[in-house]
Write a protein that binds this DNA or RNA. Sequence first.
DNA 1: CACCAGGAATGTA
DNA 2: TACATTCATGGT
Length: 210
Amino acid sequence: MNREKLLLIYNLLYKAFGPQNWWPGETKDEIVIGAILTQNTAWNNVEKAIAALKRAHLCDLKALHEAEPEKIKNLIKPAGFFNQKCYYLKSVSSFFVENGGFDRLNKLTTSTLRASLLTVKGVGEETADSILLYVFNRPVFVIDTYTKRLLSRHGGNKISSYKQAQALFMNNINPDVKIYNEYHALIVKLGKEFCKPTPTCQGCPLEGLP
DNA sequence: CACCAGGAATGTA
DNA sequence: TACATTCATGGT
């Protein structure tokens, strides 16, 4: 994998799929909540959980911080792992509330903010980077299952760690929030349509690439 | 019925 | 560092 190929893949995906308008969420709180709920879970199930939270006026980090765990669990059940995710939502919402919310956290440098997010239970590397990119608008490339799959099928080299995969993109693509946003969203689109565990390469925008 | 989904935490070797 | 296990609902 090299710079030309990374740019070529981006152009092919963009031409085939067009702009994805990510992240699908109206508020910053909703994006953070969605980032937790979507862990190893299909997005349509996350939408049901978010809709339920909205109806209960709990699609809000401050409200979640004060809500009863049992109430949260019942509302987010459609997204699966409801015991864990309730605990994660609690820990993430306390983090935001106790640190003065978005505006104050936004004063931190990207690396400091990332390290801080990684101390929160329920926030791993991918979720931290998703929040950095889609909530704080920092130029951080998000690596997910689809990205790793794409690299293993078209990469030509072995990428073992998250950090290594992330460095590949960030060392070769200018740190542009807009581009990082679009590229990750396009890779997810590709993963859902074609680059699945059992790939359907008929009509794939990347058909024919090494 | 089997398989998988926009992962993370924890434990083992 | 590299895997294995657990968590759980809903779509295909």
